[in-house]
């Protein structure tokens, strides 16, 4: 296999099949050598099977997120890791809908996916995970993930770069040696910044070292919102798609990320 130089990473898709299609086109147009999906294909959005069919049709390598782990094991909830009762209430609505609308065959397939992966990019060893290398539902936010902690994870994992998602907000922090962490954000839900576009991330290895590009994805969010309404999904979720502001899952945000949003 030839060496990879440019790889796209898709974070939480959350059943946003329109954004997934748009992101695939952008990634291909940018000439990536590979695309990885880092879990949470379902949740939040409508018709979970559509996203899975796109992923499988494009033969995109993927690892499990907490959603795939829960759905494939028949768990009663999403193991998202929220602590607030209101957040958990909405998480449960989202999980119950997704579980009821995901084909048994697909749920079984999710269980066959690995929970992590190691790949190389240039001279860097990448450790792909959903939440953190040690826990599928650990939240790694920029403002509460210290650099010494990242260095410890890299030591423990014998890796140069952690590539994760799960929080829904993209960020990265690389040291002068190009080692560090990249959270690829989410394709399924805007980044709580008042914009309707969503995000994926491209990592490129070049002569100057590793380059991180967080790529905004415009897609037909109005159509998605209509579909969500048709499926009876909560108005709060639809508002997020239409405005770019999170309305739920807020209590898990650290102070800085919370202050950046509207609610």
């Amino acid at each position: 296999m030839r060496d990879l130089t440019r790889i796209a990473f898709f974070g939480g898709i959350y059943s946003n099949h329109y954004a997934l299609q748009a992101a695939l086109q952008i990634a291909r147009a940018k000439g990536v050598d590979a695309i990885w999906a880092l879990g949470d294909f379902g949740a939040f959005g409508p018709h979970p099977d559509r996203s899975i069919e796109i992923l499988r049709g494009a033969e995109i390598p993927a690892i499990q997120g907490n959603y795939e782990e829960s759905l494939s094991s028949g768990a009663e909830d999403c193991h998202c890791g929220y602590t607030d009762p209101r957040d958990n209430h909405y998480a449960q609505l989202s999980y119950d809908y997704t579980k009821a609308n995901t084909k048994a065959e697909y749920r079984q397939w999710m269980g066959t996916l690995p929970t992590s992966a190691r790949i190389e990019l240039g001279n860097k060893r990448l450790r792909l995970c959903h939440g953190s290398p040690r826990r599928i539902n650990e939240f790694l936010w920029k403002s509460n993930t210290s650099t010494p902690f990242v260095e410890r994870m890299l030591r423990d994992e014998d890796a140069d770069l952690i590539v994760c998602t799960h929080t829904g907000i993209h960020w990265d922090r690389l040291g002068p040696d190009g080692r560090g962490i990249v959270n690829v954000g989410a394709l399924g839900r805007p980044a709580n910044d008042g914009h309707t576009h969503v995000w994926f991330t491209i990592l490129e290895s070049g002569p100057a070292g590793l380059r991180v590009e967080h790529v905004p994805v415009e897609y037909d969010h109005r159509r998605l919102a209509l579909e969500m309404a048709d499926e009876g999904l909560p108005a709060e979720f639809i508002e997020t798609i239409e405005t770019g502001w999170w309305t739920t899952c807020l209590e898990i945000l650290p102070a800085k990320e919370r202050a950046a949003g509207r609610y």
């Binding site: 509460n144 210290s146 010494p148 902690f149 260095e151 410890r152 994870m153 030591r155």
Partner: peptide
């Protein structure tokens, strides 16, 4: 000491 031990918070 905590820095060397990789403390998160």
């Amino acid at each position: 000491e905590a820095r060397g031990l990789g403390v998160r918070a």
